[in-house]
């Protein structure tokens, strides 16, 4: 039996576009591979993906294994699991990393269960210990702690990684590597994708935004437009909210930042009329820069911000929009 060796990253592509989170993982995969002194491999599945099969190499992979067939046009967990299990059994990497997108978080545990190996979800850091085990660092309990997890015996060691934690490496089109086209035969799946409705020009989901304008109970319903106007000043920005607004049906749940909502880590987080309850802080505490606007100087949020303004948002926001527009 061949030893398990090498690091492998699953490169997720949708309609010919590689997911940012997968590219980010190539950087981390490269680092781990170098530490172990092994190769970095990338798996890709899709249809008509010839134009992008070299991309993983540009981002640091040594070898790309891909499968290109009509039946892989759309993601199907049952089909993709079969294919990846086949590939993993053939190429036997010791580490298999998957970006923690919705597909990845469904696919990775399916593969792990088939291979009866260990899996760790939503990692925010990786390391290699003295026994060459992958140390998988992840934040359970609402992110209050970091757990260090290893898979001592079973191989491959599978982990999903939280998107937007690792920086994507620089694309280098001069890098060379091996590209292998594979073919596997699969069983007809029980699960069948009937329809895929791509969402059109929708608002940017908050977890993808670089700037988040978050509103709370301190804002009157009739003033939500102010937040949206401020949002328009930035590119890649979105409006989020605290839980009470969702509970009162004033905002959709998809916009809720916090323990029971989404965890975000934007470059800039502007909290308007948010008191700063712990469960909200849990969702935004990793933001790079936090601005808080609240009329109550004792609001908790001011303890969790970089820059706080005490005052009436109705005065502040329009002025802020003006200032930002002129200096941006």
């Amino acid at each position: 039996m061949v030893e398990f060796s090498g690091v492998c990253v699953y490169i997720e592509q949708r309609r010919g576009i590689i997911q940012e989170a997968s590219l980010q993982l190539l950087g981390e995969g490269r680092r781990l591979a170098d530490k172990l002194n092994v190769n970095l491999m990338a798996f890709m599945i899709g249809y008509d993906i010839n134009s992008i099969i070299n991309e993983p190499i540009y981002y640091g992979a040594d070898r790309v294994v891909y499968i290109d067939d009509e039946i892989y046009r759309y993601y199907n967990v049952e089909v993709y699991t079969q294919v990846l299990v086949e590939l993993l059994l053939k190429y036997r990497p010791e580490i298999f990393l998957v970006a923690g997108t919705k597909y990845g978080r469904e696919l990775a545990p399916s593969i792990a269960a088939r291979l009866e190996t260990g899996i760790t979800a939503d990692c925010t850091g990786f390391d290699i210990d003295e026994s060459r085990n992958l140390v998988q660092i992840r934040p359970p309990f609402g992110g209050r702690v970091l757990a260090y997890i290893i898979t001592p015996i079973k191989r491959p060691q599978i982990a999903t990684a939280r998107p937007n934690v690792f920086p994507a490496p620089k694309r280098n089109i001069d890098r060379k590597g091996e590209v292998i086209c594979e073919n596997v035969s699969i069983k007809k799946p029980r699960l069948e994708l009937v329809e895929f409705k791509e969402s059109g020009d929708k608002e940017l989901p908050i977890e993808k935004a670089e700037v988040i304008i978050a509103i709370g109970r301190g804002l009157s319903k009739s003033d939500y437009h102010l937040a949206y106007e401020l949002c328009k000043v930035f590119s890649n920005s979105a409006v989020g909210c605290s839980r009470p607004l969702v509970d009162q049906g004033l905002m959709p749940r998809s916009k809720q930042v916090g323990q029971t909502g989404k965890t975000v880590r934007p470059k800039l987080y502007i909290a308007i009329g948010i008191s700063g309850a712990v469960q909200h802080i849990a969702g935004m505490k990793d933001s790079r820069y936090v601005i808080a606007i609240n009329k109550d100087p004792n609001a908790e949020i001011f303890k969790f911000c970089d820059f706080g303004i005490v005052g009436d948002y109705k005065e502040i926001i329009p002025e802020l929009i003006k200032v930002l527009r002129s200096k941006h």
């Binding site: 009866e116 209050r144 702690v145 970091l146 757990a147 260090y148 997890i149 290893i150 001592p152």
Partner: peptide
């Protein structure tokens, strides 16, 4: 269980 938690630290 193939995985083991080796330590837990407070999140920085």
């Amino acid at each position: 269980s193939p995985t083991r938690v080796i330590k837990i630290i407070a999140a920085p």
